[in-house]
Write a protein that binds this DNA or RNA. Sequence first.
DNA 1: CTGCATCCCAAAGGATACTG
DNA 2: CAGTATCCTTTGGGATGCAG
Lengths: 145, 145
Amino acid sequence: MKNPLHNLESRELAARLSAAEPPAEIDPKLDALVREIIERVADKWTMLVLEVLEEHGTVRFTRLGELVGDISQKMLTKTVRQMESDGLIIRTVHPVIPPRVEYTLTPLGHSLSRAFCGVWIWAEQHYDEIERSRQSFRRRSSEEQ
Amino acid sequence: MKNPLHNLESRELAARLSAAEPPAEIDPKLDALVREIIERVADKWTMLVLEVLEEHGTVRFTRLGELVGDISQKMLTKTVRQMESDGLIIRTVHPVIPPRVEYTLTPLGHSLSRAFCGVWIWAEQHYDEIERSRQSFRRRSSEEQ
DNA sequence: CTGCATCCCAAAGGATACTG
DNA sequence: CAGTATCCTTTGGGATGCAG
């Protein structure tokens, strides 16, 4: 029992067995898997790397870091390893000195990029609305004494 | 200078001024704003709460926690406060005892939900592909001695 | 150049107790 | 019920040094 909010099972269960709510239309295992993916993928560095590779194609390690922005090399390494493991990017090592390692999106990575594209557009369209909302929220918060 | 990967400005700048690369088509300030939104919004708890509210409409605090899953009440509070500040949800307090606080998506929240919908679908369609990719990655990693 | 290893600090997040 | 406050542990993530 990890979730402290989950201490009402009997009541919940009874309500669920008796009541209006349909008996859960989704497979809980699949749901957990999908959630795990969402949690993994809803990560700022992952999304930023994805975006950079979508825009610039094949990119080397250091250049990738520059394009992403304020990311440490440690986080960059970690992020690309994870993305490689998930099949989002391929990592090509050219056995030369100095080493040359290139990263590029896989078809799976491109498909995620397209899926996430809607969120970028949304952010561009609504950032000012969010900004205003934050200001009014701060105002409301401060004026309640 | 926050990014240790950024120590090549002079070369970079020269290359940028001289070369093939178009002189940056985007306003850096706006880019920073959009990135901040993405970083904020590409958060697992935010996305899960968004999804729950999209599916269940108006929901009370405790019920929201149950539906989201393994979230502590501390994180739930923090997440909904932030989402309220960003204008994604509205929080309605009914002055009764025991207190009744209800959360529901704003139009802005719904629009983000729709934008992020593509990622959910992507996750459902590709989770098995990711799973297989991870397994083969682990295999490749372990067999290189 | 592209990392990995290490140390270290700050932020995320859980557990528990308490309040209106 | 819906939080806030506190304490504590875990993780994220930067800095630095070193290796192939």
